[in-house]
Design a protein around this nucleic acid. Structure first.
Lengths: 230, 230
DNA sequence: GCATATTTGTCCGTATGTATA
DNA sequence: CTATACATACGGACAAATATG
Protein backbone atom coordinates (compact mmCIF):
# COMPACT_ATOMS: atom_id res chain seq x y z
CA UNK A 1 0.00 0.00 0.00
CA UNK A 2 1.26 3.44 -0.82
CA UNK A 3 1.80 6.03 1.85
CA UNK A 4 -0.87 8.18 0.25
CA UNK A 5 -3.39 5.36 0.43
CA UNK A 6 -2.48 4.70 4.03
CA UNK A 7 -2.96 8.36 4.84
CA UNK A 8 -6.32 8.35 3.11
CA UNK A 9 -7.45 5.31 5.05
CA UNK A 10 -6.32 6.87 8.29
CA UNK A 11 -8.21 10.03 7.44
CA UNK A 12 -11.30 8.04 6.61
CA UNK A 13 -11.06 6.18 9.89
CA UNK A 14 -10.89 9.43 11.78
CA UNK A 15 -13.82 10.75 9.80
CA UNK A 16 -15.91 7.70 10.62
CA UNK A 17 -15.19 7.95 14.30
CA UNK A 18 -16.43 11.53 14.22
CA UNK A 19 -19.39 11.24 11.88
CA UNK A 20 -21.04 14.60 12.49
CA UNK A 21 -19.15 17.41 14.11
CA UNK A 22 -19.50 17.83 17.84
CA UNK A 23 -22.38 16.79 20.07
CA UNK A 24 -23.24 20.42 20.73
CA UNK A 25 -23.61 21.10 17.01
CA UNK A 26 -25.79 18.06 16.45
CA UNK A 27 -27.87 19.11 19.43
CA UNK A 28 -28.26 22.62 18.04
CA UNK A 29 -29.28 21.18 14.69
CA UNK A 30 -31.92 18.99 16.32
CA UNK A 31 -33.45 21.84 18.31
CA UNK A 32 -33.31 24.24 15.38
CA UNK A 33 -35.15 21.75 13.22
CA UNK A 34 -37.91 21.38 15.81
CA UNK A 35 -38.30 25.14 15.90
CA UNK A 36 -38.28 25.93 12.20
CA UNK A 37 -40.57 22.99 11.53
CA UNK A 38 -43.02 24.57 13.96
CA UNK A 39 -43.13 21.75 16.48
CA UNK A 40 -41.78 24.17 19.07
CA UNK A 41 -43.94 27.27 18.82
CA UNK A 42 -42.74 30.85 19.46
CA UNK A 43 -42.79 31.73 23.16
CA UNK A 44 -42.50 28.16 24.38
CA UNK A 45 -40.03 27.65 27.18
CA UNK A 46 -37.22 25.10 26.85
CA UNK A 47 -36.32 23.73 30.31
CA UNK A 48 -32.74 22.55 30.45
CA UNK A 49 -33.32 19.35 32.37
CA UNK A 50 -36.18 18.18 30.16
CA UNK A 51 -34.15 18.74 27.00
CA UNK A 52 -31.07 17.11 28.46
CA UNK A 53 -33.13 14.01 29.17
CA UNK A 54 -34.88 14.05 25.81
CA UNK A 55 -31.70 14.52 23.79
CA UNK A 56 -29.46 12.48 26.09
CA UNK A 57 -26.84 15.17 26.47
CA UNK A 58 -25.42 16.93 29.48
CA UNK A 59 -26.44 20.41 30.54
CA UNK A 60 -23.08 21.80 29.48
CA UNK A 61 -23.50 20.51 25.95
CA UNK A 62 -27.11 21.67 25.80
CA UNK A 63 -26.21 25.15 27.01
CA UNK A 64 -23.53 25.37 24.32
CA UNK A 65 -26.14 24.46 21.72
CA UNK A 66 -28.63 26.94 23.18
CA UNK A 67 -26.03 29.71 23.05
CA UNK A 68 -25.52 29.18 19.35
CA UNK A 69 -29.25 29.22 18.64
CA UNK A 70 -29.63 32.39 20.68
CA UNK A 71 -26.94 34.01 18.55
CA UNK A 72 -29.02 32.98 15.55
CA UNK A 73 -32.08 34.67 17.11
CA UNK A 74 -34.01 31.40 16.97
CA UNK A 75 -34.09 31.24 20.75
CA UNK A 76 -34.03 34.02 23.32
CA UNK A 77 -32.71 34.01 26.86
CA UNK A 78 -34.45 35.74 29.77
CA UNK A 79 -32.01 36.31 32.62
CA UNK A 80 -32.40 33.61 35.23
CA UNK A 81 -35.76 32.63 33.81
CA UNK A 82 -34.73 30.31 31.07
CA UNK A 83 -34.57 29.92 27.33
CA UNK A 84 -37.58 30.44 25.08
CA UNK A 85 -38.37 30.09 21.41
CA UNK A 86 -38.03 33.62 20.01
CA UNK A 87 -41.21 35.59 19.43
CA UNK A 88 -40.41 38.03 16.63
CA UNK A 89 -42.73 41.04 16.53
CA UNK A 90 -43.61 43.76 14.06
CA UNK A 91 -40.35 45.62 14.73
CA UNK A 92 -38.41 42.45 13.91
CA UNK A 93 -40.31 41.97 10.68
CA UNK A 94 -39.57 45.53 9.59
CA UNK A 95 -35.91 45.10 10.52
CA UNK A 96 -35.57 41.85 8.61
CA UNK A 97 -37.24 43.29 5.53
CA UNK A 98 -35.08 46.41 5.52
CA UNK A 99 -32.12 44.07 5.32
CA UNK A 100 -33.72 41.79 2.74
CA UNK A 101 -34.85 44.67 0.54
CA UNK A 102 -31.30 45.93 0.48
CA UNK A 103 -29.56 42.61 -0.06
CA UNK A 104 -31.84 40.65 -2.38
CA UNK A 105 -32.43 43.24 -5.12
CA UNK A 106 -28.76 44.17 -4.77
CA UNK A 107 -27.72 40.58 -5.44
CA UNK A 108 -29.88 40.53 -8.56
CA UNK A 109 -28.57 43.87 -9.82
CA UNK A 110 -24.88 43.55 -9.03
CA UNK A 111 -24.27 39.92 -8.06
CA UNK A 112 -21.24 38.32 -9.65
CA UNK A 113 -23.41 35.42 -10.83
CA UNK A 114 -26.51 37.41 -11.79
CA UNK A 115 -25.52 37.60 -15.43
CA UNK A 116 -24.19 34.08 -15.87
CA UNK A 117 -26.55 31.26 -16.90
CA UNK A 118 -25.80 29.10 -13.87
CA UNK A 119 -27.20 31.71 -11.53
CA UNK A 120 -30.50 31.75 -13.39
CA UNK A 121 -30.62 27.97 -13.25
CA UNK A 122 -30.74 27.98 -9.45
CA UNK A 123 -33.67 30.41 -9.47
CA UNK A 124 -35.47 28.36 -12.08
CA UNK A 125 -34.99 25.16 -10.08
CA UNK A 126 -36.59 26.73 -7.00
CA UNK A 127 -39.51 27.98 -9.09
CA UNK A 128 -40.13 24.52 -10.51
CA UNK A 129 -39.81 22.97 -7.07
CA UNK A 130 -42.52 25.33 -5.84
CA UNK A 131 -44.83 24.62 -8.75
CA UNK A 132 -44.49 20.88 -8.28
CA UNK A 133 -45.26 21.19 -4.58
CA UNK A 134 -48.30 23.37 -5.27
CA UNK A 135 -49.55 20.92 -7.89
CA UNK A 136 -49.58 18.14 -5.32
CA UNK A 137 -51.09 20.34 -2.62
CA UNK A 138 -47.94 20.18 -0.50
CA UNK A 139 -48.03 23.64 1.09
CA UNK A 140 -45.10 23.19 3.40
CA UNK A 141 -43.24 22.16 0.25
CA UNK A 142 -44.28 25.45 -1.32
CA UNK A 143 -42.95 27.32 1.70
CA UNK A 144 -39.68 25.39 1.49
CA UNK A 145 -39.33 26.13 -2.21
CA UNK A 146 -39.96 29.79 -1.51
CA UNK A 147 -37.07 29.79 0.94
CA UNK A 148 -34.88 28.04 -1.61
CA UNK A 149 -35.75 30.72 -4.13
CA UNK A 150 -34.60 33.53 -1.86
CA UNK A 151 -31.52 31.57 -0.93
CA UNK A 152 -30.74 31.28 -4.63
CA UNK A 153 -31.30 34.99 -5.10
CA UNK A 154 -28.75 35.84 -2.43
CA UNK A 155 -26.46 33.19 -3.87
CA UNK A 156 -26.11 35.37 -6.94
CA UNK A 157 -23.87 37.62 -4.86
CA UNK A 158 -21.33 34.82 -4.54
CA UNK A 159 -20.48 35.33 -0.87
CA UNK A 160 -20.63 32.41 1.53
CA UNK A 161 -20.83 34.80 4.47
CA UNK A 162 -23.82 36.52 2.94
CA UNK A 163 -25.41 33.13 2.25
CA UNK A 164 -24.94 32.07 5.87
CA UNK A 165 -26.37 35.31 7.19
CA UNK A 166 -29.38 35.13 4.91
CA UNK A 167 -30.00 31.58 6.15
CA UNK A 168 -30.41 33.07 9.63
CA UNK A 169 -32.86 35.68 8.39
CA UNK A 170 -34.86 33.03 6.55
CA UNK A 171 -34.97 30.82 9.65
CA UNK A 172 -36.34 33.81 11.53
CA UNK A 173 -38.93 34.28 8.80
CA UNK A 174 -40.13 30.75 9.34
CA UNK A 175 -40.71 31.59 13.00
CA UNK A 176 -42.75 34.58 11.92
CA UNK A 177 -44.80 32.48 9.54
CA UNK A 178 -45.53 30.06 12.35
CA UNK A 179 -46.63 32.97 14.56
CA UNK A 180 -49.18 34.16 12.06
CA UNK A 181 -50.20 30.63 11.20
CA UNK A 182 -49.24 31.18 7.59
CA UNK A 183 -50.24 28.29 5.42
CA UNK A 184 -51.56 27.47 2.03
CA UNK A 185 -52.60 30.63 0.28
CA UNK A 186 -50.06 32.80 2.08
CA UNK A 187 -47.13 31.58 0.00
CA UNK A 188 -49.12 30.77 -3.10
CA UNK A 189 -49.17 34.27 -4.68
CA UNK A 190 -45.39 34.40 -4.57
CA UNK A 191 -45.02 31.35 -6.78
CA UNK A 192 -45.71 33.36 -9.92
CA UNK A 193 -43.86 36.40 -8.70
CA UNK A 194 -40.81 34.21 -8.14
CA UNK A 195 -41.26 32.93 -11.67
CA UNK A 196 -41.47 36.49 -13.01
CA UNK A 197 -38.21 37.43 -11.29
CA UNK A 198 -36.50 34.29 -12.59
CA UNK A 199 -37.70 35.06 -16.13
CA UNK A 200 -36.35 38.60 -16.03
CA UNK A 201 -33.00 37.41 -14.70
CA UNK A 202 -32.75 34.81 -17.45
CA UNK A 203 -33.48 37.49 -20.03
CA UNK A 204 -30.70 39.62 -18.59
CA UNK A 205 -33.13 42.32 -17.55
CA UNK A 206 -31.51 42.59 -14.13
CA UNK A 207 -32.75 46.05 -13.30
CA UNK A 208 -36.35 45.05 -13.97
CA UNK A 209 -35.89 41.84 -12.00
CA UNK A 210 -34.52 43.79 -9.03
CA UNK A 211 -37.41 46.25 -9.15
CA UNK A 212 -39.97 43.46 -9.30
CA UNK A 213 -38.28 41.68 -6.41
CA UNK A 214 -38.23 44.85 -4.32
CA UNK A 215 -41.93 45.53 -4.93
CA UNK A 216 -42.68 41.92 -4.10
CA UNK A 217 -40.76 42.06 -0.82
CA UNK A 218 -42.49 45.31 0.14
CA UNK A 219 -45.83 43.65 -0.48
CA UNK A 220 -44.92 40.59 1.55
CA UNK A 221 -43.75 42.76 4.45
CA UNK A 222 -47.03 44.68 4.45
CA UNK A 223 -49.07 41.51 4.47
CA UNK A 224 -47.07 40.00 7.33
CA UNK A 225 -47.29 43.17 9.43
CA UNK A 226 -51.04 43.30 8.81
CA UNK A 227 -51.37 39.67 9.86
CA UNK A 228 -49.38 40.28 13.05
CA UNK A 229 -51.36 43.38 14.00
CA UNK A 230 -54.73 42.04 12.98
CA UNK B 1 -42.57 56.20 49.31
CA UNK B 2 -44.87 55.51 46.39
CA UNK B 3 -45.23 52.07 44.96
CA UNK B 4 -43.78 53.28 41.69
CA UNK B 5 -40.69 54.58 43.46
CA UNK B 6 -40.28 51.32 45.32
CA UNK B 7 -40.51 49.40 42.09
CA UNK B 8 -37.94 51.65 40.50
CA UNK B 9 -35.54 51.16 43.40
CA UNK B 10 -36.00 47.43 43.27
CA UNK B 11 -35.33 47.44 39.53
CA UNK B 12 -32.19 49.51 40.09
CA UNK B 13 -30.99 47.08 42.74
CA UNK B 14 -31.45 44.18 40.37
CA UNK B 15 -29.66 46.08 37.64
CA UNK B 16 -26.69 46.71 39.92
CA UNK B 17 -26.42 43.12 40.95
CA UNK B 18 -26.23 42.09 37.30
CA UNK B 19 -24.03 44.79 35.82
CA UNK B 20 -22.90 43.06 32.65
CA UNK B 21 -24.76 40.10 31.26
CA UNK B 22 -23.44 36.62 31.95
CA UNK B 23 -19.92 35.53 32.78
CA UNK B 24 -19.60 33.76 29.46
CA UNK B 25 -20.48 36.94 27.58
CA UNK B 26 -18.04 39.04 29.55
CA UNK B 27 -15.41 36.39 28.94
CA UNK B 28 -16.12 36.44 25.22
CA UNK B 29 -15.88 40.23 25.21
CA UNK B 30 -12.51 40.11 26.94
CA UNK B 31 -11.05 37.57 24.51
CA UNK B 32 -12.52 39.34 21.49
CA UNK B 33 -10.95 42.59 22.56
CA UNK B 34 -7.55 40.94 22.88
CA UNK B 35 -7.90 39.57 19.37
CA UNK B 36 -9.17 42.64 17.55
CA UNK B 37 -6.62 44.81 19.35
CA UNK B 38 -3.96 42.53 17.92
CA UNK B 39 -2.53 41.27 21.21
CA UNK B 40 -3.53 37.75 20.17
CA UNK B 41 -2.22 37.28 16.65
CA UNK B 42 -3.89 35.16 13.94
CA UNK B 43 -2.93 31.49 14.23
CA UNK B 44 -2.11 31.61 17.93
CA UNK B 45 -3.50 28.74 19.95
CA UNK B 46 -5.68 29.42 22.99
CA UNK B 47 -5.22 26.58 25.51
CA UNK B 48 -8.28 26.16 27.69
CA UNK B 49 -6.55 25.71 31.01
CA UNK B 50 -4.30 28.74 30.59
CA UNK B 51 -7.24 30.98 29.71
CA UNK B 52 -9.35 29.61 32.54
CA UNK B 53 -6.61 30.53 34.97
CA UNK B 54 -5.98 33.94 33.43
CA UNK B 55 -9.65 34.90 33.30
CA UNK B 56 -10.66 33.11 36.50
CA UNK B 57 -13.55 31.24 34.92
CA UNK B 58 -14.34 27.55 34.71
CA UNK B 59 -13.70 25.51 31.61
CA UNK B 60 -17.40 25.24 30.91
CA UNK B 61 -17.85 29.00 30.90
CA UNK B 62 -14.74 29.53 28.80
CA UNK B 63 -15.87 26.98 26.25
CA UNK B 64 -19.21 28.73 25.97
CA UNK B 65 -17.39 32.00 25.29
CA UNK B 66 -15.15 30.29 22.74
CA UNK B 67 -18.16 28.85 20.95
CA UNK B 68 -19.63 32.30 20.50
CA UNK B 69 -16.37 33.73 19.15
CA UNK B 70 -16.07 30.78 16.77
CA UNK B 71 -19.56 31.58 15.45
CA UNK B 72 -18.28 35.12 14.87
CA UNK B 73 -15.32 33.74 12.88
CA UNK B 74 -12.90 35.42 15.26
CA UNK B 75 -11.67 32.07 16.51
CA UNK B 76 -11.52 28.69 14.81
CA UNK B 77 -11.68 25.21 16.27
CA UNK B 78 -9.55 22.27 15.10
CA UNK B 79 -11.12 18.98 16.21
CA UNK B 80 -9.38 17.66 19.31
CA UNK B 81 -6.49 20.02 18.73
CA UNK B 82 -7.77 23.19 20.28
CA UNK B 83 -8.98 26.68 19.54
CA UNK B 84 -6.96 29.17 17.50
CA UNK B 85 -7.24 32.79 16.49
CA UNK B 86 -8.70 32.71 12.98
CA UNK B 87 -6.32 33.18 10.06
CA UNK B 88 -8.37 34.70 7.24
CA UNK B 89 -6.85 34.17 3.79
CA UNK B 90 -7.31 35.62 0.32
CA UNK B 91 -10.53 33.67 -0.22
CA UNK B 92 -11.95 35.17 2.96
CA UNK B 93 -10.99 38.67 1.88
CA UNK B 94 -12.73 38.24 -1.46
CA UNK B 95 -15.80 36.80 0.24
CA UNK B 96 -16.01 39.64 2.74
CA UNK B 97 -15.62 42.26 0.03
CA UNK B 98 -18.27 40.72 -2.18
CA UNK B 99 -20.64 41.14 0.74
CA UNK B 100 -19.43 44.63 1.59
CA UNK B 101 -19.60 45.84 -2.01
CA UNK B 102 -23.19 44.72 -2.16
CA UNK B 103 -24.30 46.06 1.21
CA UNK B 104 -22.43 49.33 1.65
CA UNK B 105 -23.20 51.01 -1.69
CA UNK B 106 -26.72 49.63 -1.37
CA UNK B 107 -27.16 51.31 1.99
CA UNK B 108 -26.02 54.61 0.50
CA UNK B 109 -28.29 54.26 -2.53
CA UNK B 110 -31.46 52.93 -0.96
CA UNK B 111 -30.99 53.24 2.83
CA UNK B 112 -34.00 54.65 4.67
CA UNK B 113 -31.70 57.21 6.34
CA UNK B 114 -29.51 57.99 3.35
CA UNK B 115 -31.52 61.04 2.37
CA UNK B 116 -32.18 62.42 5.84
CA UNK B 117 -29.68 64.88 7.41
CA UNK B 118 -29.10 62.76 10.49
CA UNK B 119 -27.64 59.95 8.43
CA UNK B 120 -25.10 62.29 6.87
CA UNK B 121 -24.16 63.57 10.31
CA UNK B 122 -22.95 60.13 11.41
CA UNK B 123 -20.72 59.86 8.33
CA UNK B 124 -19.38 63.36 8.90
CA UNK B 125 -18.58 62.58 12.55
CA UNK B 126 -16.51 59.54 11.56
CA UNK B 127 -14.64 61.59 8.96
CA UNK B 128 -13.80 64.28 11.51
CA UNK B 129 -12.75 61.62 14.03
CA UNK B 130 -10.34 60.21 11.47
CA UNK B 131 -8.88 63.59 10.58
CA UNK B 132 -8.32 64.44 14.24
CA UNK B 133 -6.58 61.11 14.81
CA UNK B 134 -4.39 61.59 11.74
CA UNK B 135 -3.47 65.12 12.83
CA UNK B 136 -2.11 63.79 16.11
CA UNK B 137 -0.37 60.84 14.48
CA UNK B 138 -2.68 58.32 16.16
CA UNK B 139 -2.81 55.65 13.45
CA UNK B 140 -4.81 53.11 15.39
CA UNK B 141 -7.24 55.96 15.94
CA UNK B 142 -7.40 56.42 12.18
CA UNK B 143 -8.15 52.72 11.75
CA UNK B 144 -10.88 52.93 14.41
CA UNK B 145 -12.43 55.96 12.74
CA UNK B 146 -12.39 54.13 9.45
CA UNK B 147 -14.38 51.31 10.99
CA UNK B 148 -16.80 53.80 12.48
CA UNK B 149 -17.27 55.31 9.04
CA UNK B 150 -18.25 52.01 7.48
CA UNK B 151 -20.47 51.23 10.44
CA UNK B 152 -22.22 54.55 9.83
CA UNK B 153 -22.59 53.74 6.15
CA UNK B 154 -24.36 50.49 6.91
CA UNK B 155 -26.38 52.31 9.56
CA UNK B 156 -28.04 54.25 6.75
CA UNK B 157 -29.98 51.08 5.96
CA UNK B 158 -31.69 51.28 9.34
CA UNK B 159 -31.55 47.58 10.18
CA UNK B 160 -30.11 46.48 13.52
CA UNK B 161 -29.58 42.97 12.14
CA UNK B 162 -27.56 44.36 9.28
CA UNK B 163 -25.58 46.52 11.72
CA UNK B 164 -24.77 43.51 13.89
CA UNK B 165 -23.70 41.42 10.93
CA UNK B 166 -21.50 44.17 9.57
CA UNK B 167 -19.85 44.44 12.98
CA UNK B 168 -18.77 40.81 12.54
CA UNK B 169 -17.35 41.51 9.10
CA UNK B 170 -15.48 44.54 10.38
CA UNK B 171 -14.03 42.54 13.28
CA UNK B 172 -12.81 40.02 10.72
CA UNK B 173 -11.29 42.87 8.74
CA UNK B 174 -9.28 43.90 11.78
CA UNK B 175 -7.86 40.37 11.92
CA UNK B 176 -6.87 40.70 8.30
CA UNK B 177 -5.21 44.05 8.89
CA UNK B 178 -3.22 42.51 11.70
CA UNK B 179 -2.15 39.68 9.40
CA UNK B 180 -0.71 42.04 6.83
CA UNK B 181 0.68 44.33 9.50
CA UNK B 182 -1.34 47.23 8.18
CA UNK B 183 -0.44 50.46 9.88
CA UNK B 184 -0.03 54.12 9.21
CA UNK B 185 -0.22 54.76 5.52
CA UNK B 186 -2.53 51.83 4.84
CA UNK B 187 -5.61 53.56 6.19
CA UNK B 188 -4.48 57.09 5.42
CA UNK B 189 -5.61 57.27 1.77
CA UNK B 190 -9.14 56.36 2.77
CA UNK B 191 -9.51 59.39 5.00
CA UNK B 192 -10.18 61.67 2.04
CA UNK B 193 -12.18 59.08 0.16
CA UNK B 194 -14.43 58.74 3.20
CA UNK B 195 -14.77 62.53 3.18
CA UNK B 196 -15.69 62.49 -0.51
CA UNK B 197 -18.43 59.92 0.10
CA UNK B 198 -19.76 61.89 3.06
CA UNK B 199 -19.82 65.08 0.96
CA UNK B 200 -21.78 63.43 -1.84
CA UNK B 201 -24.28 61.97 0.61
CA UNK B 202 -24.80 65.36 2.23
CA UNK B 203 -25.40 66.87 -1.19
CA UNK B 204 -28.01 64.25 -1.88
CA UNK B 205 -25.98 62.81 -4.75
CA UNK B 206 -26.56 59.27 -3.50
CA UNK B 207 -25.85 57.51 -6.78
CA UNK B 208 -22.46 59.23 -7.10
CA UNK B 209 -21.69 58.48 -3.46
CA UNK B 210 -22.49 54.81 -3.95
CA UNK B 211 -20.33 54.60 -7.07
CA UNK B 212 -17.41 56.27 -5.31
CA UNK B 213 -17.79 53.94 -2.34
CA UNK B 214 -17.87 50.88 -4.60
CA UNK B 215 -14.73 51.95 -6.44
CA UNK B 216 -13.05 52.64 -3.14
CA UNK B 217 -13.92 49.22 -1.74
CA UNK B 218 -12.70 47.51 -4.91
CA UNK B 219 -9.41 49.37 -4.56
CA UNK B 220 -9.06 48.42 -0.89
CA UNK B 221 -9.74 44.76 -1.67
CA UNK B 222 -7.07 44.72 -4.36
CA UNK B 223 -4.51 46.29 -2.06
CA UNK B 224 -5.26 43.81 0.73
CA UNK B 225 -5.08 40.80 -1.60
CA UNK B 226 -1.79 42.07 -2.98
CA UNK B 227 -0.43 42.49 0.54
CA UNK B 228 -1.49 38.95 1.51
CA UNK B 229 -0.01 37.39 -1.60
CA UNK B 230 3.16 39.48 -1.65
C1' DG C 1 7.51 3.06 15.52
C1' DC C 2 6.17 3.25 20.29
C1' DA C 3 5.05 4.72 25.01
C1' DT C 4 4.00 8.71 27.65
C1' DA C 5 2.10 13.15 28.74
C1' DT C 6 -0.98 16.70 27.55
C1' DT C 7 -5.35 18.46 26.04
C1' DT C 8 -9.80 18.22 24.34
C1' DG C 9 -14.77 16.56 24.46
C1' DT C 10 -18.19 15.18 27.41
C1' DC C 11 -20.45 14.18 31.56
C1' DC C 12 -21.78 14.56 36.51
C1' DG C 13 -22.53 16.64 41.16
C1' DT C 14 -23.14 20.69 43.67
C1' DA C 15 -23.52 25.46 45.52
C1' DT C 16 -25.66 29.89 44.96
C1' DG C 17 -28.80 33.24 43.59
C1' DT C 18 -33.19 34.40 41.23
C1' DA C 19 -38.00 34.10 39.96
C1' DT C 20 -42.49 32.28 40.63
C1' DA C 21 -46.31 29.80 43.08
C1' DC D 1 -43.35 35.28 53.38
C1' DT D 2 -42.02 30.89 52.63
C1' DA D 3 -41.03 27.28 49.65
C1' DT D 4 -40.10 25.25 45.35
C1' DA D 5 -38.12 25.12 40.88
C1' DC D 6 -34.65 26.48 37.99
C1' DA D 7 -30.79 28.96 35.77
C1' DT D 8 -26.00 30.11 36.51
C1' DA D 9 -21.44 28.87 37.46
C1' DC D 10 -17.98 26.01 39.40
C1' DG D 11 -14.94 21.91 40.03
C1' DG D 12 -13.89 17.18 39.30
C1' DA D 13 -13.88 13.06 36.51
C1' DC D 14 -13.08 10.05 32.48
C1' DA D 15 -12.32 8.46 27.64
C1' DA D 16 -10.57 9.69 23.27
C1' DA D 17 -7.43 12.07 20.49
C1' DT D 18 -3.30 14.48 19.84
C1' DA D 19 1.35 15.88 20.67
C1' DT D 20 5.89 14.75 22.50
C1' DG D 21 10.04 12.34 23.88
Amino acid sequence: MTDAAADALAALARARIVPTATTAERTADAVREQVVEGRLAPGVRLPEQAFCDALSVSRNTLREAFSQLIAERILARAQHRGVFVATPGVADVRDVYRARRLVEPGAVRHGVHAADPLGGKALRAAVEEGRAAAASGDWTGVADANQHFHRAVVGLAGSTRLDAWMALLLAEMRLIFHRIGAVEDFHAPYLERNAAVADLVEQGRLEDAAAELDAYLADAEARIVAALEG
